[in-house]
Design a protein around this nucleic acid. Structure first.
Lengths: 169, 169
DNA sequence: CTGAAGTTTCAGAAAATACTGAAAATAACG
DNA sequence: CGTTATTTTCAGTATTTTCTGAAACTTCAG
């Protein structure tokens, strides 16, 4: 019966990994997070390597990345020299962490770029330039709104988020 | 002064393309959309190829993909044999289209998979299996909520969305 | 029909991305 | 210290993804 558990775990890991790659997240990174979400206890690098059949280097770099996103935490156990890793398991928290990270990495930079483009177009005459500038302004307005929403989300508690969603639905 | 316009256009295209690849959208696909957003008039495949310096095959397949997402439309002009392409320019509509597409491609399948995993774990005894099943249920609940939100978004008009966001902010 | 204009397909090439494995570095223990 | 366990790095390799370019196909005007 334990075999069944492992089988389901592997299925979950595989699918979560595929989902990750659709979201611009490294497949292995998503798989490690999936594996750790499936474990009540913190796991070592070796256990991760064995479960996913990946090399130490690969495991290591993706664990580091997950830590930098705040998706997993390093746990030290007394009497043990190895490091153990524990996943953030609350879907709401995971969502907030991802929103925060993507806001920083993707949304903020694009706002700067759009504003540069708009500034550079000042003084360029003609209908085409005017239309393009209008388009850039519309996009900027939208992205800035998205930015504010993500900011709010990444600072919010689960129950606040939940209330918003209930209003929407 | 037209040179300046082209320069800004290229910058915008480049950056929007980079943003796209972070979102799991093919870079060229995002660039073509960016180019068409910068043009008041519909453009031909050849104009797209020239502006982005890409091959016909590449242009063609990404144009097809953009059409299937609903992000651009084919326009036929009388007296012209060539096909012209026009971008959806409203950021809100673009957002809704992307939400709709990703819901279909990513969110819906994962719900099925999670439910399978939960069903397969029925009957597996032990704390580890129980904990894992609980985790899967939490994830499912969350993803299903996300699914409903995306459904709602993809059906909504701009002003409805706007109202929600004002409430949140 | 015929042929020019335009579109579609796809095998192979190129580029981008991710992974391995082993060596170097670090930390803990006696 | 010296030894051993563990983590970190990274050059080279493998894999995945994307792109090219040319041939096949379609459409349309004469």
């Amino acid at each position: 019966m334990v075999a069944k558990l492992e089988q389901v775990r592997d299925e979950f890991i595989t699918e979560w990994g595929a989902l990750g790659s659709a979201w611009g997240v490294n497949r292995t990174m998503a798989q490690i997070h999936a594996y750790l979400m499936s474990c009540p206890e913190a796991q070592t690098t070796d256990e991760i390597m064995e479960s996913l059949e990946i090399s130490r280097g690969n495991a290591h770099s993706n664990i580091k990345e997950l830590i930098s996103w705040g998706m997993i935490k390093k746990v030290l156990k007394k009497g043990e020299r190895k490091e153990f890793f524990l996943a953030e398991k609350d879907p709401w928290k995971i969502f907030c962490l991802v929103a925060k990270e993507r806001k920083k990495r993707e949304v903020e930079p694009i706002i700067g770029i759009l504003n540069n483009c708009i500034a550079d177009l000042k003084g360029v005459k003609g209908k085409e330039a005017d239309d393009f500038q209008k388009q850039l302004k519309d996009l900027t307005e939208f992205v800035e709104m998205g930015d504010r929403v993500m900011e709010k989300i990444s600072r919010s508690e689960k129950n606040i988020l939940f209330k918003w969603l209930l209003k929407i639905l």
